[in-house]
Design a protein around this nucleic acid. Structure first.
Lengths: 219, 219
DNA sequence: TAGATTGTTAATCGATTAACAATC
DNA sequence: TAGATTGTTAATCGATTAACAATC
């Protein structure tokens, strides 16, 4: 049903790329100019063969006995993930989560530049957090257009999510990073990527329950 | 390498359970007492057969022509995910993200009760956020023991993560919900579940790049 | 050279999807 | 009854892992 990945790289591989980048930065800092797949694998708890497959996918090859060139690999990953040039983004929803994300400096190293926050609450509008202005949601469409922003980070209350998405899409937003608990519907051509806390918590709870003997307490 | 899931339910299924719960709550609110797999599937953009497989996994069966019993299904999912009895948790790191999570009321519906926050910054210790106290990290081990808390939510700066995990594990924490960008090492028997924002952002960026023609701009 | 590591080709594994008889 | 839906059994699909020749 989902169309084949145009980039030809599998999503599981793409999700692992930031981990490789992190290990490679460490490696570089240690002054190593090459690193082997067993080294990377052990640092991340993966199998060497999986590392080799992933690195092959982004088009960097290694040398037998020597490993992979650290700098070249890092550049290739950063380039692939778009970390080498910043994309502007608006945060919609200046609640605690929105403010937290606005203050996260790590995003700039990941190609994301938060330009401003938007909120519907007049009490918040006009104030600043982390040096960024909180603007009235009424001005969103205009500013998306004038500043050519393509990415929205959604941190509004769940009930507001559906309506806000409509506004965002109508304004020309092409990618939505969805932090709400709501499954969003978006038209063809608009990418929605969700950070699903409930799913993550479900995995944690389930593993904990398995660990301590699921349901031991009751019955 | 990973041991077989003791609960016998595949992780992808577990990750979808909260979505089913959400749809079922809606359905119940609409007064329907049964719901079919095609109904659920269309609400979530899944295939009916996948819904049936998932629901079979948690042990609820439906009726041909009628569908699945909404209330029973909801109860089964909530029970499986532990939403029916609260587990206490400590948040470690009272920065913006920690405070944001402390203020998220949805967790209580997901079986998680945030008892308090911990921070190493004396300027924060003693204050309250969302009605919850911020305590000195020095008191962590003692309070884990006295209050029998088993879950820690990790929202410290990345550099601090490794050390804090050691402290937490030594104190008796059994499950860590890791919001840092750090891959954590924990001993056998301690569950670490990571909310990997970098991976999620990588997927969004990559899909956006595919959409607009990867690398069209340069070269 | 000897031997560690790469990269290719094949095998395995697990999840998703399809087909269809059973059922109400 | 007619027909929508379930649940089982089989097929497909994609990702991970294994085996091993090639290489430096």
């Amino acid at each position: 049903m989902a169309s084949r990945r145009p980039s030809g790289i599998a999503l599981p591989t793409i999700r692992r790329l930031p981990m490789y980048a992190s290990v490679l930065e460490q490696t570089r800092q240690e002054g190593q100019d090459h690193v082997s797949s067993p080294q990377i694998a052990s640092a991340l708890g993966l199998e060497p063969i999986q590392v080799r497959k992933d690195l092959a996918a982004i088009g960097v090859s290694g040398q037998p006995r020597v490993g992979f060139p650290v700098a070249e690999l890092l550049t290739a990953i950063e380039r692939f993930l778009g970390w080498d040039n910043l994309s502007d983004a608006f945060i919609i929803g200046a609640g605690h989560l929105g403010v937290a994300l606005a203050g996260y400096h790590g995003f700039s190293r990941h190609g994301l530049n938060v330009v401003a926050l938007f909120d519907a609450d007049p009490g918040k509008v006009g104030t600043r957090v982390h040096g960024k202005e909180i603007l009235d949601m009424g001005r969103f469409a205009d500013l998306v257009d004038r500043l050519h922003v393509h990415i929205a980070i959604l941190t509004v209350p769940d009930e507001a999510a559906a309506e806000v998405v409509e506004t965002a899409v109508a304004a020309g937003i092409r990618g939505i990073w969805n932090f709400t608990a709501t499954k969003l519907v978006a038209p063809e051509g608009v990418i929605v990527e969700r950070v699903d806390l409930a799913a993550s918590l479900a995995v944690l709870s389930s593993k904990l329950a398995d660990m301590s003997g699921r349901d031991r307490g009751s019955g």
